[in-house]
Design a protein around this nucleic acid. Structure first.
Length: 491
RNA sequence: GGCGGCGUAGCCAAGUGGUAAGGCAGAGGUCUGCAAAACCUUUAUUCAGCGGUUCGAGUCCGCUCGCCGCCUCCA
């Protein structure tokens, strides 16, 4: 069964057929490293991480390339502000980015090239464009001549006439047309530069992705992705450069993720409604953020709000609670040849989930629908576990539990969830809550013991008093058959 | 002005021709001394509005209203 992928170029879903059977080449535009990465970056990174993982899961041999833009105006500006070299800024934020990705559980791509490590490739491409008459040099700057590429606009659905009419770019007199864009920029004094046929200069923004994607994936490759905002002009320009330079088609499938809004407002620096990944992960477990992001289809806009994150946390808690229960039941389960009707049904549901999950993911990576099915399975499993808790004689075989656990492992490995043992997941949460509660576990245990004594003596007034007292500090008690457990209140 | 998207229950959110997934919140119940957790039941005759195509439409077409993105660096 081939998967369906929405291709921005065609504006519709189409079957994904790679150039070479069994292989997939994928390039996703990475970040410009001049500051900490934010929630918007996180979404793009998580979306393509999941696409990467899913393609691998399907058995594709995937080459995934994600670049670092480590030379550009913003980096240079930042370096000048701090009085350090551009390299110091870019390397610093590459390190920070890598750290964020590790926290977020984003898999390393096959290649993570830096733009500045590929200057010769870029110069060669610019030279090829000049030689073929697609680009022209003006006083050290080299521009791409948009009018020479009749297909310009095919990705974004724009045409050259409309663009010319609506151009609000300040017109650079030296450009032959306002639409022409820089392939190579002459360096100003004090700016980093590389020697090239046009003097001292540095690459324009778009050229790096064309050069690096081709180096690692070939002239024509399968998937090119990034945020919606990159469709125009970045990806449009990449296509123009690459196809004119090589004379061959560039990427075949264009995948773009939607934006993140903050409390229904566009995220922007001027509104200061900006959240860095680092900041969010101080409060929320990384998997909460992933679950939240994957609860929406990747092309829809998603609204970041505390309520939505808290909801995601509730969901993740529920899933981990089930995993914990399954671990416990598994430990006590026995082999059995005979299945009760309830267990039969459970196996059927597990199997049904497996099929529905695949169906959802095959349909343009519909993680939201896939998660819906996971919750349905969760309810089925909880139902059985609930019965078993009430009546320990209810039997279940280890094989059935194993099959259910395997489905969760599969989802976990594709979505980047359930990387922790349920025990450590809840343990961490308790530790976090404890810090906020300012009470020691020993003190809690002491109060629980005191409450137990009170309950045994039927002094429920005192027992409730203790429970309320702990609740005020954010400690929630649960009276279980085997004793009293405690958790911390949700953030 | 050009291009594109969206509008599904209190909230979040799947669903591109076959009769409305899932989650959160709420209500009732099982369990509990009472709770918590879990489970059960329940919550959209209806998918912004109006027309049209069709045996059949959130789903396709047209119009209207409302929101948003891109066209400038941006995931």
């Amino acid at each position: 069964m081939t998967i369906q992928v929405y291709n921005t170029m065609k504006k519709k879903k189409e079957p994904f057929v790679p150039i070479r059977e069994g292989f997939a080449g994928m390039y996703a535009c990475g970040v410009t490293v001049y500051d900490f990465s934010h929630i918007g970056h996180a979404r793009a990174l998580v979306v393509f991480d999941v696409i990467y993982r899913y393609l691998k899961h399907l058995g594709f041999n995937v080459t995934y390339v994600r670049n670092y833009t480590d030379i550009d105006d913003k980096i240079i500006k930042r370096a000048q502000e701090e009085g350090v070299t551009y390299k110091e800024i870019s390397e610093r934020y590459i390190k920070e980015f890598d750290y964020d990705m590790e926290l977020l559980g984003v898999e390393k791509p096959t290649h993570a090239p830096r733009a500045t490590d590929h200057i010769p490739e870029m110069i060669a491409m610019v030279q090829a464009l000049v030689d073929k008459g697609f680009a022209y040099e003006v006083d050290g700057d080299v521009y791409f001549k948009v009018s020479r590429f009749s297909e310009y606009g095919k990705l974004s659905g724009k045409n050259i006439e409309d663009l010319s009419a609506g151009a609000r770019v300040e017109v650079d007199e030296r450009k032959q047309s306002p639409l022409d864009f820089a392939l190579w920029k002459k360096s100003k004094p004090e700016e980093p530069f590389w020697e090239c046929p046009w003097g001292k200069g540095r690459p324009g923004w778009h050229i790096e992705c064309s050069a690096m994607s081709q180096k690692y994936l070939g002239k024509t490759f399968d998937i090119h992705g990034g945020g919606m905002d990159l469709i125009f002009p970045h990806h449009e320009n990449e296509i123009a450069q690459a196809e004119c330079a090589t004379g061959e088609p560039f990427a075949r499938y264009w995948i773009h993720n939607g934006f993140v809004n903050i409390n229904q407002q566009k995220m922007s620096k001027s509104l200061k409604n900006f959240f860095t990944i680092r900041k969010i992960l101080e409060t929320y477990h990384p998997e909460v953020l992933r679950l939240f992001l994957l609860s929406n289809h990747y092309r829809s806009p998603v609204d970041y709000s505390e309520q939505n994150l808290t909801e995601a946390k509730t969901g993740l808690d529920r899933l981990y609670a089930l995993l914990k229960d399954m671990d416990e039941i598994q430990a006590a389960a026995r082999k059995s040849a005979e299945l009760s009707p309830a267990e039969e049904k459970m196996r059927d549901d597990v199997q049904a989930f497996s099929e529905k999950f695949t169906e959802a993911m095959d349909d343009d990576f519909n993680t939201a629908a896939a998660l819906g099915h996971l919750y349905t399975l969760t309810r089925t499993l909880n139902m059985f576990i609930d019965q078993k808790k009430k009546d320990p004689s209810v039997h279940i075989s280890d094989e059935t539990i194993k099959r259910a656990q395997e489905q969760f492992q599969k989802v976990g490995s594709i979505f980047g969830l359930f990387n922790e043992s349920p025990h450590s997941y809840f343990q961490k949460q308790r530790e976090k809550g404890l810090t906020a509660a300012a009470i020691s576990p020993e003190e809690i245990e002491r109060l629980i013991a005191e409450r137990l004594a009170a309950r045994k003596a039927k002094d429920f007034k005192r027992a409730d008093e203790i429970r309320n007292q702990l609740a005020e500090k954010g400690i929630i008690l649960k009276d279980m058959p085997q004793g009293t457990e405690w958790t911390t209140k949700d953030i």
